[in-house]
Simulated assay, not measured.
Amino acid sequence: MKKYLLIFLSYGLLAQAQLNPKIQKEDITRIETELASDKMEGRKVFSEGIELASSFIETEFKITGLSYYGDLKNYRQEFIEAGKPANNVIGVLKGKSKPEEYVVFSAHFDHLGMKKSGDDTIYNGANDDASGVTAIITLAKYFKVLNKNERTIIFVAFTGEEVGGYGSSYFSENINPDKVVAMFNIEMIGTQSKWNKNSAYITGFEKSDFGTILQKNLKGTNFTFYADPYPQEHLFYRSDNARLAALGVPAHTISTSKMDSEANYHKVTDEVSTLDLDNMTEIIKAIAISSQSIISGKDTPARLEKM
């Protein structure tokens, strides 16, 4: 009798864990620390460091149990850029009742590489954009365990954002934009926003009701999504969301970066020690909660005007 009771209790705990997935700081710290480590050598395109980063993301997707994208035989979407091989990393959670409707979560895993001299020569890119990649890996695990996505979720880590966005360009050219319901691009969420903790902004907030939907889903929490406070920076057009946005997809970037005063932006000092990992954890939780009505098929953001 005791044996069966233990089995029943173990099954009950497992079921509860599956129904209540956790987004934990410890896992976020582990992923972020690895992606921004010195051994990645700044994750510059076409480098050994970015190859290490790609392999790490692929392993995380495999552990999570994501499917391959389209006709790919692995998690790499490979292509040639400037005569050299490059790749995005893509994993998929197939939708239950609306598999032909896609919700994309994205971030870029490339950064600036290394400089030739100095006491510190590595552009670790902890905030830019290891923080975003950490978010999509964490969200993939969350939604896999939650197991309630009616729409298909595509998790993609782009290469080449820092040198022209060719990873997101290739992805956008090889997907039917009419099937993409929304894109959550996540860029630099490791520091506190201008409104301090429990807040972030959405680029192009006024262009669709994407942000309004997210904020509605956060009712009763202490988290707030704001409109982009740096319109003079034209951030909506400067990140990996821009390619699908130009095709009419409600594709927006979520960020906390203080573009008028971010001390470590594109500097070798952009290291894990400068990040607020507690706040970053709360931001990822907020994205998970706020996106669920879109993932479930309850809400569909308005399309953008094509550019």
Rank of each mutant, 00 (worst) to 15 (best):
K2C: 04
L5C: 01
I7D: 08
L9M: 13
L9I: 15
L14F: 15
A15R: 03
A15H: 05
A17Y: 12
K22G: 05
Q24R: 15
E32P: 00
A36I: 02
D38G: 02
G42S: 13
G49L: 10
G49R: 09
I50Y: 01
I50M: 06
A53E: 03
G65S: 09
G70A: 02
G70I: 04
F79T: 00
A82Y: 14
I90G: 02
G91R: 06
G91K: 06
L93N: 04
K96M: 07
K98G: 00
E101W: 06
Y102P: 02
V104N: 01
H111F: 07
G113Q: 03
G113E: 03
G113S: 08
S117F: 09
T121W: 08
I122L: 12
Y123K: 13
N124Y: 09
G125F: 13
G132E: 12
L139N: 06
A140M: 10
Y142M: 08
V145M: 12
I153W: 04
A157Y: 08
T159E: 12
G160R: 11
E162K: 05
V163M: 14
G164W: 15
G165C: 10
Y166P: 00
Y166N: 08
S168K: 07
E173D: 12
P177R: 12
D178N: 13
N185E: 07
G190L: 05
Q192A: 05
Q192Y: 05
S193K: 03
K194P: 01
N196S: 15
Y201R: 00
Y201T: 06
K207N: 10
K207L: 14
S208W: 10
F210Y: 14
T212M: 08
L214K: 07
N217L: 12
G220S: 06
F223W: 09
P229C: 08
P229I: 11
N241H: 15
A245R: 12
P250D: 01
H252S: 07
I254Y: 01
T256H: 11
E262C: 01
V268Q: 09
E271P: 03
S273Q: 14
T274D: 03
L275F: 05
K285A: 04
I289R: 01
S291Y: 11
I294K: 03
D299C: 06
A302K: 15
R303H: 13
R303A: 06
E305L: 13
K306N: 13
M307A: 07
